[in-house]
Design a protein around this nucleic acid. Structure first.
Length: 489
RNA sequence: UCCUCCUUAGCUCAGUUGGUUAGAGCACAUCACUGUUAAUGAUGGGGUCCUCCGUUCAAGUCGGAGAGGGGGAGCCA
């Protein structure tokens, strides 16, 4: 099969394409960054199209010694050469260099990435360079693939991609602490009669924040297009220091008219499986690399801490099996009847009405069912105002049509619900929760004019990437993590 | 925010009961070798022992405070 030379300004061929072909003797132009230079002859060159490097052979004696001295780890090169069968064992094709041009030098003494294993913590501090490592190469190619798959999934189903605002004056969702957005000076901000900051003089004439969710605006779109989704950044000013929280993260929030809670669950399950399937099919190399990497890490762990399941195995298991679906009440029963509970191993109390703690969710997912679990019908008291009250509840045990999807290793990956479409019930709930109705009249209008049953959910994009890549720290699946006390770049 | 562990060379780490000149592997430099795959061999340079305060004849080592990081918890996606 002849190589297809892409007609770019430099007729460059990408390394992924080059490696997928056969040694034909064709002349090619390759560009990339040096990963290693062995034996003063063999350059491992990488251009980010794949983790695999192309071996460039600079035959001894054919190149100036001073030039070869500049072939250091991290330097960028332009190579013109012929594609030949490799005499070595590690690869089938290699490029025998005719000309070798240094595009950018890289001082070997100062370049932080060495041809060796680095800790994730070290690379996190070099986030601007960590893309050039195999691990982060795979992680961020997968991040891209999953983002593309998100759009493809919804586009195939006729959903409209709705851009909900990033700056918002709505503070009703209660999803978390918000970042203030203002142009008022911090020192000497104008005050009103009551001595409070006078936001009428602010840029928007009122107090504004970065969004914590696009859901409420998403519902407005669903009431016209039937099915919409949002996919954008969201912001939480919580002082959370964990491996699964970010101050700035990306969330996918579909919102569907004419869906009930069952339809909602079906869509969420199909969505997650679609994303995993897309990655397995289109990024097999990256999954396999991360699989091997995790297997290596597992070897360092004591036996009882090993998962015993490879990354690929885990993903295939999720794709090929139905998610377990249980009600909150059933979940509490399972916990109460568990040996774990009887041996008093739960730190937090288990009884109907509590919010499930991490340890409870982990028990259900990792010990009891050993696969993703969808929990529905949570107590109304612990859930948001917009969730639909279930009919026929025992007094004092009112539940709402909420659903959380819990995934092994990362906990809650999806949170969603059927929305309360009945105006009287919604208003009653909002009053009970002290949410000012007048500020929310735009939202209540959807229930006043042609209200319909509808539902939706939010999927944390980074948590999904964590699941697919097996990365344990969420800071390693977003290019530039924003966490408390950390906003580099 | 709470609990807990950690911070020694560019990186990963060792450093005994508080005791003389703080070590190793990798990386880097020089030389040798040349079909290597984390190349190999030899030689060499490289240290604010996180910071401050204290205890002591003497602190990388003990105590206190602070900073940064890891893991767990809460909040959540």
């Amino acid at each position: 099969m002849p190589f297809e030379i892409r007609n770019m300004f430099n007729d460059r061929i990408k390394i992924k394409q080059l490696l997928s072909g056969t040694p034909t003797g064709t002349e090619v132009v390759v560009m990339g960054w040096v990963r290693s230079f062995r034996n003063n002859q063999f350059i491992a060159l990488n251009d980010g199209s794949t983790n695999a490097n192309i071996q460039i052979v600079a035959t001894l004696g054919e190149f100036d010694e001073a030039l070869l001295k500049r072939v250091t780890t991290g330097a960028s090169l332009k190579i013109v050469g012929t594609v030949v069968e490799s005499l070595g064992k590690g690869q089938t094709v290699e490029v025998k260099a005719k000309t070798l041009e240094i595009l950018g030098d890289s001082d070997a003494e100062k370049f932080p990435l060495q041809p060796k294993k680095h800790s994730l913590e070290f690379l996190r501090e070099k986030a601007h360079l960590r893309f050039r490592t195999n691990t982060f190469g795979s992680v961020f190619r997968l991040r891209h693939a999953l983002a593309f798959a998100v759009h493809q999934f919804y586009n195939e189903r006729g959903f409209v991609y709705l851009h909900t605002p990033i700056i918002t004056s709505s503070d009703a969702e209660g999803a978390g602490e918000m970042f203030k957005v203002t142009t008022l000076p911090l020192e000497g901000a104008p005050k009103n009669d009551k001595g409070e900051i006078d936001y009428t003089q602010d840029f928007f004439g009122k107090g504004t924040n970065l969004t914590v969710s696009g859901q409420l605006e998403g519902e407005l779109g669903a009431m016209a297009f039937s099915e919409i989704y949002t996919f954008g950044p969201t912001f939480r000013a919580e002082n959370s220091n964990t491996t699964r929280h970010l101050a700035e993260f990306w969330m996918i929030e579909p919102e569907m008219a004419f869906y009930d809670i069952e339809d909602n669950m079906n869509l969420a399950e199909a969505f997650i499986k679609y994303l995993i399937n897309y990655a397995l099919k289109n990024n097999a190399d990256d999954i396999d690399f991360l699989d091997a990497r995790l297997a290596e890490e597992e070897k360092q762990l004591p036996t009882e801490k090993r998962s015993g399941l490879g990354l690929r195995e885990k993903l295939e298991l999720v794709v090929n099996n139905n998610f377990e679906r249980i009600t909150y009440t059933e979940a509490i029963d399972i916990l109460l009847n568990s040996n774990h509970y009887k041996k008093k191993k739960f730190q937090y109390e288990v009884k109907w009405g509590i919010d499930l703690q991490s340890e409870h969710e982990r028990y259900l997912v990792e010990q009891h069912f050993k696969k993703p679990v969808i929990v529905t019908g949570y107590p109304a008291a612990i859930k948001a105002f917009y969730m639909r009250m279930n009919d026929g509840c025992e007094p004092g045990k009112e539940t709402v049509a909420a659903m959380d999807i819990l995934a092994p290793g990362i906990g809650e990956i999806v949170g969603g619900s059927q929305r309360e479409e009945r105006l009287d019930k919604l208003e009653a709930r909002m009053k009970a929760m002290h949410i000012p109705l007048e500020d929310m009249s735009w939202y209540l209008d959807t229930r006043r004019f042609g209200t319909v049953p509808h539902a939706g959910f939010g999927l944390g994009f980074e948590r999904m990437i964590q699941f697919v890549t097996g990365m344990t720290n969420i800071r390693d699946v977003i290019p530039f993590a924003r966490t408390p006390k950390n906003c580099e770049y």
